[in-house]
Design a protein around this nucleic acid. Structure first.
Lengths: 374, 374
DNA sequence: CGCACTTGGTTAGGTAGTAAACAAACGAAC
DNA sequence: GTTCGTTTGTTTACTACCTAACCAAGTGCG
C-alpha cells in the first residue's frame, strides 16, 4: 500500500502545484513559503511517487530556464456531476484542473451510461480521487438532514451507477455555482459575495472571507424561506417567496396581463425576456416588477451579511435586462453593494462541482500520504 | 525600546497564556502544539521580559506538581467602554481577563471623568495596551464609511478624553454583545449563532465558525434594512423594519389599544412586560404579536445564514415572555434553530468590548515583540 | 565571441524544535 | 516508611528546514 508515502511539507507543495496546474520550483517556493533547497527535496520526493512530473522548461526574459512541473500520473483525476432536474452535465478533470472529459444530456435517465463512458476513458489517468454530485436539495451534515431529503439525494447518486468504493461527495447546486464564481467567475477578486440564483426556484450561495457558508443544517442561502409576505397585517407563509419569485409565477403574471392582445402569452422565461428586449411594453413592465422583487431579496441578504457584491445567476437572474432594476432597488434599500451578472452562466454549477472535487481529491492524496507514514 | 523582545513562538504561547488567564507548562504545550523543552525555553524568555510570572503550583490527583504561570506586570491592561446613548459602562481588565476596575454612569457627559479615574488606578498595572469603544453606529473599515457616521463616532470617542497615543479601536455595540455571547455566554458551545438585539433599535451580530462577520461596509447584522414591508402589492421602505420592531413603536401600539381602560397605558417596555407577566390580556396580546414579528426577523436571518442558534438580547428581546412566540414562529417558517435568551443581559456589550480589547492588546504586545527583532 | 548580468539549482553550515530517555517530585498503597 | 505509578521538567541526539554561498545555465551587449 505504501506507494506514495509523501511527507508533511510535500503535501503542501503538492496542493500548491495542483492549484496552479503548472509551476516552476521558484514559484512553488514562494507559494508555500519554503526555501529553494527544501522545494528541491520535495520535488524529488513527489517525482519518485509519480505525483508530479516535469513538463518542460520555461525561460523568462533573462536568466536560466526553470524546470516546469505538472501533476504526475498517480495524482489521478476527479469527476463532477451536475444532476439537474431536466439535464445532467459531467466534467472530468485532473487534480490540476485540466479538462479530461465533458458531456451533458437533457435526459437524466441516460446519465448512468454517460458516467460509465467517462470512467472508462478516465481510468488511464490514474485513480479516481473524488466525485462531487451537485443536487438541487439541501445537503445537510451527517445526522442533521430530513430523512426524505437524504433519501432523494442518495437515490439520485445511486442512479449514476458509480463504482463501489468511489469517494462520492454531494453539494447543493447553488453552492457549487457560488464556488465557481469565487474561483473563476465574478467573485474572483472579492473576499465576500453572494451568488443569487433566480430561475424555476430561488437560492443563494453565501461566500464570506473566500469561504462558502454552508450553515448548521446545510441550509445557508436557502432564501426561499425568508419571511414573505410580511407587513403589519400580513403574516409570512413558509416558502412563499419561492412561489413569488420562481419563473412559473413570472409566466403566470405575464399570462394574467395578456388578454386582449393578438399574440399569445410567452410560454418560457426566455421568450418573455426576448419580447422585453424587443421593446414590448407589457413584457418590460413585468420584467421591471420582477427586477424590483429580486432587488428586495438581494437587499435583505445584504442587510444580514453585507457582502458588498451580489452575483445574479440562474435562468432568469442571468438576464441583463433584470440588472438595472436590481441595482436601483439595492441602492435604495440597503448597504452599498455592487450587483453584476454571472460570468459563467449555466455551466457555473458543474464548474463549481469540479472545483470542490479537486479540493476533495487533493485532500484524498494528502490523507493517503499521511496514512502511509504512520 | 527593546525591552520585551520576544520571539515568534513566544508570542503564540503568550497569547495562549493570556486566553487561559492561568496555565501550567504542559497545558501551554498542548494548547500551542509545542514540545515540553520548547515551552520551557519560551517561558524563561517570557519571564525575563516580565510578560509572564509564576503564580504558584497546581497539584493534580497524582504526579508531580506543576508550576502555574500568569501574565506578568509588563503585559499591561486594557480598557473597554460601552458608549450607549443613555448610559456609559467601563471595564478595565488584564490581558488575561482579570477584572481591574468597573464603573458605569447614566450621564454620558460624566464619562470623561470616569475614564480618567480608571486610567489613574490602572497605570500601576503596566502599559495601557488597547481601548475598545462600543458605539451604536455602524463601524466601517477605513475608506468605506459615511462621513457623517464617522464624524459622530470620532466625536463620541474624543469626548472620553483618552490620552494622546492610546491605541483606540471602535466596534458596533451589537457586535460586541455577540462576541461576549460567543466567548462566555449562550454561544459558548456553538460554532455559529446570531445574536439578535431587540430594544429601542434592532440589530444583529452574526457569528459563523466562531468568527464575527463584519461585512464589507461593517454593516453585517444591520437587519433594520431587511426589505419591509414586503408583499405582492407593498413595496419595502428603507429602515421600516426598525420602525416596526423598535420599542417606541411597541409602546405606541400599546397606547392604541388602551382607550376605555381605567389604568394608564404603560410608558416603558419594562412596564408593558410587567403587565403581561401579571396576566393582563391586552399586554399579553401585544407581546405575542411582537414575538411573532421578532420570530419573522429571526426566521429571515436563519434563511440566509442558517446559524442553528439565535440568542435574543436587548431591552425587549431579553424578556422571557417573548421567547415561546419567537420559537414557534422560527419553527414554522425556517430551518431548525434553537432560540434562547441572552445569558449576559445588559452587560454583554461591555464584556464583548473587553474581549476585543484583550485580543487587540495581545496583538499589540506581539507586534512590539516582532518589531524589536528587526 | 567574450563579458556582465540575471535567474535556477545545489552544497555546506547553522538553528529551532522534536522525540525519547532520564531525573525529580508528588500522592497513594501496602 | 518504603515502594510504585504518575506527572513534571531537563538533557541528549536527531531531524527538518533555513540562510548563505557557490556553481550552472541562460540572455543581452559591445
Amino acid at each position: 500500500m505504501a506507494k506514495s508515502g509523501i511527507g508533511d511539507r510535500a503535501g503542501e507543495v503538492f496542493a500548491a502545484l495542483a492549484a496552479a496546474g503548472q509551476a516552476t520550483r521558484p514559484q512553488l517556493a514562494v507559494a508555500c513559503g519554503l526555501s529553494k533547497p527544501t522545494v528541491s527535496l520535495v520535488m524529488a520526493e513527489l517525482e519518485a511517487a509519480a505525483l508530479a512530473e516535469r513538463s518542460g522548461s520555461s525561460s523568462g526574459a533573462t536568466g536560466r530556464t526553470a524546470a516546469v512541473y505538472r501533476l504526475g500520473p498517480r495524482a489521478g483525476y476527479v469527476l463532477a456531476v451536475d444532476r439537474g432536474s431536466t439535464q445532467v452535465a459531467l466534467r472530468a478533470t485532473t487534480l490540476g484542473g485540466d479538462l479530461l472529459d465533458e458531456d451533458q444530456t437533457s435526459r437524466p435517465a441516460s446519465a448512468g451510461a454517460m458516467v460509465q463512458a467517462v470512467l472508462r476513458r478516465g481510468n488511464a489517468r490514474g485513480p479516481l480521487r473524488a466525485v462531487v454530485v451537485a443536487v438541487s436539495d439541501v445537503v445537510s451534515p451527517p445526522g442533521r438532514g430530513e430523512p426524505a431529503t437524504m433519501a432523494r439525494i442518495s437515490g439520485a447518486v445511486a442512479a449514476l451507477g458509480l463504482p463501489g468504493g468511489a469517494p462520492v461527495h454531494t453539494e447543493n447546486n447553488v453552492n457549487c455555482a457560488a464556488i465557481a464564481e469565487l474561483a473563476e467567475g465574478a467573485g474572483r477578486d472579492h473576499d465576500s459575495f453572494v451568488f443569487l440564483q433566480v430561475g424555476v426556484a430561488i437560492g443563494a450561495g453565501v461566500v464570506l472571507g473566500r469561504r462558502l457558508v454552508r450553515g448548521v443544517n446545510g441550509a445557508a442561502g436557502e432564501v426561499a424561506r425568508l419571511a414573505y409576505p410580511w407587513a403589519d397585517d400580513r403574516p409570512p407563509v413558509r416558502d412563499a417567496l419561492e412561489a413569488r419569485l420562481g419563473s412559473r409565477t413570472l409566466l403566470r403574471r405575464a399570462r394574467g396581463r395578456w388578454p386582449g392582445r393578438p399574440d399569445p402569452a410567452p410560454r418560457t422565461a426566455a421568450a418573455l425576456f426576448a419580447l422585453a428586449e424587443k421593446g414590448d411594453a407589457v413584457a418590460l413592465e413585468i420584467v421591471a416588477e420582477h427586477a424590483e422583487a429580486v432587488g428586495n431579496l438581494a437587499a435583505s441578504i445584504c442587510a444580514v451579511v453585507d457582502p458588498g457584491l451580489v452575483v445574479l445567476g440562474g435562468g432568469v437572474g442571468r438576464n441583463k435586462l433584470l440588472l438595472p432594476g436590481v441595482v436601483a432597488t439595492v441602492d435604495r434599500l440597503s448597504w452599498p453593494a455592487e450587483v453584476v451578472v454571472s460570468e459563467l452562466g449555466a455551466r457555473a454549477t458543474v464548474l463549481g462541482a469540479a472545483h470542490l472535487a479537486r479540493e476533495q481529491g487533493i485532500r484524498a492524496v494528502l490523507g493517503e500520504g499521511a496514512a502511509n507514514r504512520r
